[in-house]
């Protein structure tokens, strides 16, 4: 390589880059950071002045028990005594099972109901009724019906997450443009081809909308379910247990975990949606 003094990258080039990067990204990064900071400061002030008995965010590091939980998320002393990472993973595992079941049943049933007007008329009132029942109300029902606490928790996830998937899939199938159906009829496309080349691609945006709403609901429901079920490893029961023992800052720490995981789940679904849906269908 022949060094060319005219085009060699220089310090000033880097400064230019930094400046344009700042112009583009600075507001996107700095403004949210300032927002979070103000929120935390106001909260801390409210609790230090004694306006609320809720400890401020600083208690996460000043309380010894909480600090240990914060610093050692991976510890495992057997039984219920596990770090917050493991607690979260157990909860996520339940969500994964219940949500997968909800996706399979919701999409399958949604396609059936969406393609068959008679079935739709028969079951729509039941669905509309059942989807109004809050996750917490399902807990006693599922405990009685299933006897087993683990299964009952998964069932609560399932029953909470299945409605948005089911209803969005149904609508997606019903919304297939008449033009596409007409093409399929003239060409006498086989049912299998119709399913994969017309029905699924056409309904996919709706299915994804349902899946994305459902992942958030499933995560909300697991917390509710675990709180009531007691005696299971999981972030929801952890909160309940901490509250019973009056470890309030532990509750706050766990709530941060819950919020972060919920956000991550939603982002992950949005990413999946972007990856799978073709550009022209978003």
């Amino acid at each position: 390589m022949v060094a060319n003094p005219g085009t060699r990258p220089t310090g000033s080039n880097f400064a230019d880059f930094a400046r344009t990067f700042w112009k583009k990204q600075g507001q996107n990064i700095m403004l949210p950071l300032i927002g979070v900071l103000v929120f935390l400061v106001v909260w801390q002030l409210l609790s230090s002045t004694g306006l609320t008995r809720l400890p401020g965010p600083l208690s996460l590091v000043t309380e010894q028990r909480t600090r240990e939980l914060l610093l050692y998320p991976f510890y495992d002393l057997g039984g219920l005594d596990k770090g917050l990472f493991w607690q979260t993973m157990y909860s996520l595992g339940r969500v994964a099972k219940g949500y997968t079941a909800a996706a399979v049943v919701g999409i399958g049933l949604g396609i059936l109901v969406g393609t068959n007007q008679t079935i739709n008329k028969a079951v729509d009132p039941i669905f509309q009724f059942l989807r109004m029942i809050a996750p917490l109300a399902w807990v006693p029902i599922s405990l009685i019906a299933l006897q087993n606490v683990q299964q009952a928790a998964i069932f609560v996830i399932f029953i909470t997450a299945v409605w948005p998937i089911l209803i969005n899939t149904t609508v997606g199938v019903q919304q297939i443009p008449q033009d596409y159906k007409n093409v399929a009829r003239v060409l006498q496309i086989s049912p299998r081809k119709y399913f994969f080349k017309v029905l699924i691609p056409s309904a996919l945006p709706y299915i994804f909308t349902g899946l994305r709403i459902a992942i958030g609901l499933a995560w909300l429901a697991i917390i509710a379910a675990e709180i009531v079920m007691s005696g299971v490893i999981g972030i929801g029961f952890f909160i309940w247990n901490a509250y019973q023992n009056n470890y309030v800052s532990e509750v706050i720490l766990a709530v941060f975990y819950i919020g972060a995981v919920g956000l991550l789940l939603d982002r992950a679904m949005a990413y999946l949606q972007r990856m799978i849906l073709p550009e022209e269908q978003r």
Partner: peptide, 20 residues
Amino acid sequence: LKPGPDRMVVFQGYALLPWL
């Protein structure tokens, strides 16, 4: 009695599948 490929239609709105 019913549509069939012996009587093919060019539809008013093209009716192409946008994902293909």
